[in-house]
Amino acid sequence: MKQTEKKLQYQTTLIVNGKTEKLTLPAWVSLLDALRHHLDLTGTKKGCDHGQCGACTVICDGKRILSCLTLAVAKDGSEIKTIEGVGSKENPHPLQRAFIEHDAFQCGYCTPGQICSALGMLEEGEAQTLEEIKDSLSGNLCRCGANANIIDAVTEVKANHYE
């Protein structure tokens, strides 16, 4: 990264869903807003912008993080996976299929964050029991109250694909 001008623009490269994106951004742009406003990747949601809801969860260098509390410039060179990179309409990820099967959402706004968080959890491999899984996914709020269906969907995918 090269600082081009004081308090102005920073050249930042993000590898988003496998694609190299070269952005020129001021430092105050969050990773969330970089995705939504600058890359038109609006699948990552803004639910609070303060790290309180989990809707903006993305997978950064293999770990689930909150893109709203992350500066885009600080992730120069990082690999970011957003919901758009998890699966497609034509070829959904098992988690996406399970969410549909279990009706694990209503309004759909928390859903990308729930799925990215679940994917992060499954790949971390730390949460094992039902209680641990619920706790590990508790950083993602769902106001529609689809919690039970979300947990059912994730535990099914864990049993079928991660054990």
Binding site: G54, T57, K63, R64, I65, L66, L69, S136, G139, N140
Partner: peptide, 9 residues
């Protein structure tokens, strides 16, 4: 503390 995402960062 916090959530899994926050603990990761």
């Amino acid at each position: 503390g916090a959530s899994a995402q926050i603990r990761n960062a």
